[in-house]
Nucleic acid binder design. Structure first.
Lengths: 251, 251
DNA sequence: CTCTCCTGCTGATCTGGGTTATACTACGAT
DNA sequence: ATCGTAGTATAACCCAGATCAGCAGGAGAG
């Protein structure tokens, strides 16, 4: 059944507002999006590689990942999505998915039909701009991942991911950067970092022994943020898509 | 001096038109963008890492790359840009560059002020949408690079890049996918592929011996496209951001 | 209450690609 | 002419991370 889900949508609105100013009518339009809730169990694919999709996938609770896959089945995650994120806003424009979406933990998602998103974007140019900004934020994380995979050691990569997730969780109001829910298996982490699970295990052990990371239940604790950031060469600048003026809309 | 450069801008217009329908007035607006030409010699940086920029960088001739850099100076290219591409459309929204832009060969670029782009985007919602689509196309290449760097062998990565560039050059009307200008050094290729120049050299030799690639002057020839694509696991789908209806604008 | 299967963990061994160093062009500058 | 500089090529050696082959504990399914 498709209907309005104000509470989860306010998460999404919050994410947009972090980067874009939105008029009252635009905020209402976001909160009024028709959508459909679904719960997906850990390890299930939400969108299959190559699917033709007609809705976007908004994470409400849990953790989801965009991925691509080789012929032999090995996966590479290309993005992690926390509550408030839309995993595949690009599908509005490229409806044949050249990616898949996987639930890393038990995850609640909202399926928002493309038709709805197109409608609000055309009625409110400010929202179209906000969607563009959202895509740019996503892409700048992607660019950092390229650097990490291409040039950094296993430890530095993992450290960078932890810093990135910490800041994103904090920005989203879902924890502190030094302690946040991050319920991911070593296998999934390996798929994100372009490593094997064995090596992730060994590297995490070294980092734990070095007091850089601590996994407590389903949360991570980063006690020595500065040292971790130094190892990662982490600079949060790439996460700051400037909170936008509305110039493009109102000029 | 800032003025209109219709001929080079028509390249950019062509690129937009491959993905978006544009009304006559919108096309004129693109061709009428005020801009400034510049020639940059090979290996010079066009935009420095961390620069505050107030214009976008449109490649008119040559080859440019977006990159990021580690503390020790090692580079990782995150995108290659051929004539018609805007290297940093995202800078309109994120004017503090968390990337650099480098001329790989002697390159002619057009600096298009953000103010100009914002003006046409606000006057023509169809252009704002076209810019969004452009960003999405850029990001889907980025996602493929993540997969290549994370999970593929040196040979497969290089093969994939050659296939990607072939298709892009062909789409841009700058050659055939099996033979196109690609004047890149092994060092630069190494920076793109997350490898060392030494290993790129070894791998290229193997591929040459295997009749997969041939460098003739400043062009590449790919005589056995199918075999190359198989090695690369190359599927051009990710390059196809659907030529767009104008729904978001005219709905 | 047992039987999986998943997850974390470990050790032994192997290899793709990194590192370092050197030589051989072709070319642009003086 | 010659010198310096990029770029390609090569060889010898090294190492981070992959591969393979397990084991143990815990949680869900029957």
């Amino acid at each position: 059944m498709t209907h309005s889900n104000q509470k989860p949508l306010s998460l999404f609105l919050g994410r947009l507002l972090r980067r874009s100013e939105l008029a009252q009518a635009e905020r209402q339009a976001v909160l009024g999006l028709k959508s459909q809730v679904a719960q997906v169990r850990a390890h299930r694919d939400i969108v299959l590689l190559g699917d033709q999709v007609n809705s976007c996938c908004l994470v409400v609770d849990g953790l989801a990942a965009r991925f691509d896959q080789l012929a032999d089945g090995r996966r590479q995650l290309t993005a992690l999505h926390i509550p408030g994120d839309i995993c595949d806003l690009q599908s509005v424009v490229a409806p044949v998915a050249s990616w898949g979406i996987e639930a890393l933990t038990t995850t609640t998602v909202l399926h928002v039909p493309h038709a709805e998103l197109k409608r609000v974007a055309s009625e409110h140019p400010g929202l179209a701009l906000a969607f563009w900004r959202d895509t740019i934020a996503d892409a700048s994380i992607l660019a950092k991942w390229v650097v990490n995979l291409g040039r950094k050691s296993a430890q530095s990569r993992i450290a960078h991911l932890l810093c990135e997730m910490g800041v994103r969780m904090e920005q989203a109001g879902l924890g502190r950067r030094a302690a946040f829910a991050f319920d991911i298996t070593q296998n999934q982490l390996a798929d994100a970092m372009g490593l094997t699970a064995v090596h992730v295990n060994r590297t995490l052990q070294a980092m734990r022994g070095d007091a850089l990371v601590r996994f407590a239940g389903r949360t991570v604790e980063l006690h020595d943020w500065d040292r971790l950031a130094r190892i990662a060469e982490f600079d949060p600048a790439f996460l700051q898509v400037m909170r936008g003026e509305r110039e493009l809309v109102d000029a």
